[in-house]
Nucleic acid binder design. Sequence first.
DNA 1: GGAACCGGATAAACCGGTATAGTACCGGAC
DNA 2: GTCCGGTACTATACCGGTTTATCCGGTTCC
Lengths: 340, 340
Amino acid sequence: MSRPTIADIARRAGVSKGAVSFALNGRPGVSEDTRARILAVAEEMNWRPHSVARALGGARADSVGLVIARPARTLGVEPFFAKLLSGLQAGLSAHSVTLQLMIVEDVQEEIRVYRRWASEQRVDGLVLVDLRTRDPRIDVVDELLLPAVVIGGPGRHGSLCSVWADDREAMTSIVEYLAALGHRRIAHVAGTPEFRHTRRRARALRDAADRLGLAGVESLHTDFSDTEGAATTRTLLSRRERPSAIVYDSDLMAVAGLGVATEMGVSVPGEVSIASFDDSVLTELTHPAITALTRDTYAFGERAALALLDLLADPNAPREVKTETPRLTVRESTAPWSGR
Amino acid sequence: MSRPTIADIARRAGVSKGAVSFALNGRPGVSEDTRARILAVAEEMNWRPHSVARALGGARADSVGLVIARPARTLGVEPFFAKLLSGLQAGLSAHSVTLQLMIVEDVQEEIRVYRRWASEQRVDGLVLVDLRTRDPRIDVVDELLLPAVVIGGPGRHGSLCSVWADDREAMTSIVEYLAALGHRRIAHVAGTPEFRHTRRRARALRDAADRLGLAGVESLHTDFSDTEGAATTRTLLSRRERPSAIVYDSDLMAVAGLGVATEMGVSVPGEVSIASFDDSVLTELTHPAITALTRDTYAFGERAALALLDLLADPNAPREVKTETPRLTVRESTAPWSGR
DNA sequence: GGAACCGGATAAACCGGTATAGTACCGGAC
DNA sequence: GTCCGGTACTATACCGGTTTATCCGGTTCC
């Protein structure tokens, strides 16, 4: 026989389907004796719940979805995503919840996937990443009544739960550190201004600069790619008044920037200091190793998974989870400013 | 009303449930007129198939599974996986098949996941990675009657389909290139010998060395981590008779190795040449940029997805798909041997 | 002694589709 | 006029669970 059903168990144990269901789910309605007997039979027949059939009755799908709207080819290079994914996954597997992963080209397609998943009841909840300004996904997910966790910053996201780290404070710490080293002209090679976290960081930089009285501070936007990171660095270092320190929004761009500096014969950290907003092996392995804001992205993912599971279990779970602020790991790419 | 069912459509269109099912699935049994009317009503009511209910009848789950048995924390750093994942994903989404991802600690747990998925009919097929010698997964998957694609090398894998690139030829090309540059002592910083691809590469190296009459050739095993890659490099470079060229099994280890060389004051490629078996931004961004075997991992993943979809559609689909052999991209880290 | 109550169990409905047996009707051949 | 075959469609069983209404026998209470 292929796969035992509860009807098979019921027959074998001499009870009804309903009794078996009660017994297997630990609900009242059967005596302890009967329950034990049914469980024994189920065990003996090696019965497993048929999740599909169970889900039909309106139960959990035991699965949550993550859609990433970025060109699929660029995805492999960002260590951040891979780490986040692992963390999420680990947090979910611990509760036997699987992750449905989908990579799409743009937000519109992402929304279409959400609608489909919702209507097919494929997932119990969602994880949203790369929040944008006036993000259309928030309203859609809200309307679909799908519990969701937003990876990103603080602030209102409809009824969604947000899991975030304090980018603002992190950026401030980097600027203060550089200012203390004597740097006054600090450039920020940022991501696309569409993303909220990019804007938040740029704003934090400006505020800190104002407070510290730094004049030559600016943010330049890129598409997060190593190519644009390198190009922007080239532009910056070719200026007559070149910045004495550059902060990159991602480790990948920082490494690319370091490459450009080396190639142009600009010594790091002698002539220019370099710092990265994100950390990974990348920044550790270069020479000089790059000063970076370190955070445990894996744990961050795990935390997000937990928050989502909480939300699934209890719709009134807290709507905001703040995680550890990234801490500055000083390496060899930053030094006191020795210029004019 | 929450979600229209085919019963709702049937009522509204004045036909039976069966007729609606026929119409929506493009099967014979209804006239063209009726079909058009039913489709119009379904469209108007914004009906979507309820995949769960559909699956209950024994249909597809429209989902395939990928389980990765590696410590979750180490996963983020391997660009290879992320790229493979993106490619797989892209190939699958094109056919509206989702990917269930699970990261586990070891192969035993992986097997447990397979059993569960099979019994719950959660997935239609599997993708297996990191094939080992005498891999226990093959028999299990075979027995569970789950169509599966193995990412890796050639050879018998029970009834499974394998998608592979010619590692052997690739390794040969790297050795021939280095030999042509005059290198005679070539070290190979390999992965764990448990993995088949590692052994295959080591064997290819030995064979090529024999054929070319190179004496001082050896493979040293690591766990694929940057830490062990660095440590092994340190050992190699500390020897009295140090190798004149080192081939790394992964880009990550190659970058780590380059770092160690720089740190030890061993010039690359002046005193030692470095080549990587895998390619990514990592190898491009270092200084010097690292010579590497390049392949389109994304396309590789896509190809694997296609092979699995083929297998799902037709159980007699070809059992072996050979993809493009990685080609050597010469960069700055390799140079003619100028030693004694 | 009869009503009310309760735990333990069952039969049947239900979830939203698919598959299949059956029916009504029509045109054509004998 | 009947028989046949095919089309268009309906009614219903079924997939494997969960849920609910109901039932039954035994206590408890008035």
